[in-house]
Simulated scan of single mutants.
Amino acid sequence: MTRTLSRLALAALATAATLGGFGAGAPAASAAAPNSPSAACRTDAHGLSLTAMKDTSDPSLQSIQFLSANIGRAAGNGFMIGTSDAGCHWQTIYNAGKLSFAQMQFLTNAKGYVLAQVAYGKPNTLLKTTDGGASYAWIPTGAHPFERIQFLNERTGFGFTRAFTYKTADGGETWTKLATPPNTRYVHFMTERKGWAVVLVAGGYEVKRTLDGGKHWTDSLYAKSATLAGGMIYGTDSADVWVLLYGDSGMSQTSYSVYHTADAGAHWKQVVSRPTAGGGPAPGPVAPSGKLTGPAGRPTDMAVVGRQAAFLVAGSGAIDDLQFGRSLDDGRTWTNLPGAAPGYDGKLSFVSAATGYLAVTSFEQPAVYKTADGGSTWKKVFSLPVKP
């Protein structure tokens, strides 16, 4: 049963009344801040103060999600901010300092789920909001702190630990463990029944597919790899899938490959193969030097829009400059673009092939950037204040 956060000794978590533009009854086009929509756009902290932060880490942006070109949120350790005018102005939604947001998934402008630490260094807790993120209710997950969540609607969702997948059909009141293949390291469901998994097998990775909600899994792709460091799966269509597979890391370099299928796994194409001196060979066949090169660094996030556009951001602490690449033709070609922004980690949210947002973790100043040309150029729209 859903319990309020006060049952976790978090009564102080409750924030002020729902803010304009992000409440249960807020219209989608309402203003994001008291500023006039015609006022000049800002790039500073938009009034956010981090004095309430309780942990000892530097302020960071850890999650970003846009529901449309105008309405979106970004969150980090102790705060959540929102905009309803495409990043021109931002307002504080949550700033109690008690939640460190690892992931958020809003289904509407009012209702959403988040994974957050309720205390510094603690496992993630699953929470639900019905007022746009101003307050939260605890969703019990048993003895399984999730590393990642995926909700298809308000009642049907999945929770993922490092090796296991759990499903709820009643909004989190109960969870059932799904039968995934041994040594599964990543699962992504396109629908309630159609899903994909990255599995560690002898000598490499196997990408498997299910058509019945996880009851049965079939082999789809094998990629040889000397190092099995995991991977990620992206896509919005059950037949159009992108798979990222990691090789080894060393000297602030990571080897990786990106595969794509447009026909539900009948055929796969290796779109990116990036071996490195420090990380060794990339998973899969050895590609001719320079032919399938992706962004430098360790990929930190990918975004897929429909069946045409895919975007990849990668970073490295050695260079503190995020690298960016994309395909705008469903994987037929791949282009690496100039560095996106100063930083070593980034999270993406694209709403179209042209418009996207990037939450950046940086040694200097974490910030949110926006692109209106598919990542060719990025403009800062928000900067975190320096922690007192």
Rank of each mutant, 00 (worst) to 15 (best):
residue 91 Q to C: 00
residue 112 G to S: 10
residue 31 A to T: 07
residue 70 N to Q: 15
residue 11 A to Y: 00
residue 23 G to K: 02
residue 15 T to N: 12
residue 64 I to D: 00
residue 15 T to P: 00
residue 104 M to K: 13
residue 25 G to I: 05
residue 38 S to L: 07
residue 29 A to K: 15
residue 103 Q to W: 04
residue 93 I to N: 02
residue 104 M to D: 13
residue 10 L to W: 02
residue 62 Q to F: 03
residue 97 G to L: 07
residue 67 L to G: 11
residue 72 G to T: 10
residue 122 K to G: 12
residue 90 W to L: 10
residue 26 A to P: 01
residue 32 A to Q: 02
residue 69 A to W: 01
residue 9 A to F: 15
residue 67 L to D: 09
residue 93 I to R: 01
residue 98 K to S: 13
residue 53 M to I: 09
residue 67 L to C: 08
residue 74 A to H: 05
residue 10 L to T: 03
residue 102 A to N: 13
residue 32 A to K: 03
residue 69 A to T: 13
residue 46 H to T: 02
residue 73 R to Y: 07
residue 68 S to L: 11
residue 96 A to F: 05
residue 28 A to I: 13
residue 77 N to G: 05
residue 24 A to F: 06
residue 123 P to I: 14
residue 16 A to G: 14
residue 87 G to E: 10
residue 126 L to G: 02
residue 40 A to M: 04
residue 38 S to N: 12
residue 39 A to P: 03
residue 127 L to S: 04
residue 102 A to Q: 14
residue 26 A to M: 05
residue 124 N to D: 14
residue 19 L to G: 10
residue 27 P to L: 15
residue 128 K to V: 15
residue 112 G to C: 08
residue 92 T to H: 04
residue 105 Q to M: 07
residue 36 S to G: 02
residue 79 F to H: 07
residue 102 A to E: 14
residue 88 C to W: 05
residue 17 A to V: 03
residue 122 K to H: 14
residue 92 T to N: 06
residue 84 S to I: 02
residue 37 P to C: 07
residue 32 A to M: 04
residue 105 Q to G: 02
residue 114 V to F: 04
residue 68 S to A: 14
residue 116 A to I: 05
residue 79 F to C: 08
residue 70 N to A: 11
residue 47 G to M: 02
residue 69 A to L: 02
residue 21 G to Q: 01
residue 126 L to N: 05
residue 34 P to E: 03
residue 117 Q to H: 08
residue 52 A to G: 03
residue 41 C to D: 03
residue 80 M to C: 03
residue 49 S to A: 12
residue 102 A to W: 06
residue 88 C to I: 09
residue 82 G to E: 07
residue 47 G to Q: 03
residue 36 S to R: 09
residue 116 A to N: 04
residue 57 S to W: 11
residue 102 A to L: 12
residue 101 F to L: 12
residue 103 Q to V: 03
residue 118 V to H: 09
residue 25 G to P: 04
residue 107 L to V: 14
residue 55 D to S: 01
residue 73 R to W: 14
residue 85 D to G: 07
residue 11 A to K: 06
residue 125 T to S: 13
residue 107 L to F: 12
residue 18 T to H: 00
residue 79 F to I: 09
residue 100 S to F: 11
residue 71 I to L: 14
residue 55 D to A: 01
residue 15 T to R: 12
residue 39 A to R: 11
residue 46 H to L: 00
residue 37 P to A: 10
residue 10 L to Q: 07
residue 37 P to K: 11
residue 38 S to K: 11
residue 45 A to F: 06
residue 62 Q to E: 08
residue 25 G to W: 05
residue 26 A to Q: 09
residue 82 G to V: 05
residue 85 D to K: 06
residue 119 A to Y: 09
residue 56 T to P: 00
residue 128 K to H: 09
residue 96 A to M: 11
residue 43 T to M: 03
residue 52 A to W: 04
residue 106 F to G: 08
residue 39 A to M: 10
residue 71 I to N: 14
residue 105 Q to N: 06
residue 120 Y to T: 15
residue 43 T to V: 09
residue 44 D to Y: 12
residue 28 A to V: 13
residue 79 F to L: 09
residue 34 P to H: 03
residue 75 A to C: 02
residue 109 N to P: 05
residue 41 C to G: 13
residue 10 L to I: 03
residue 32 A to F: 01
residue 89 H to W: 07
residue 27 P to K: 15
residue 94 Y to V: 00
residue 96 A to L: 10
residue 34 P to W: 06
residue 114 V to R: 02
residue 32 A to I: 03
residue 94 Y to L: 01
residue 49 S to W: 08
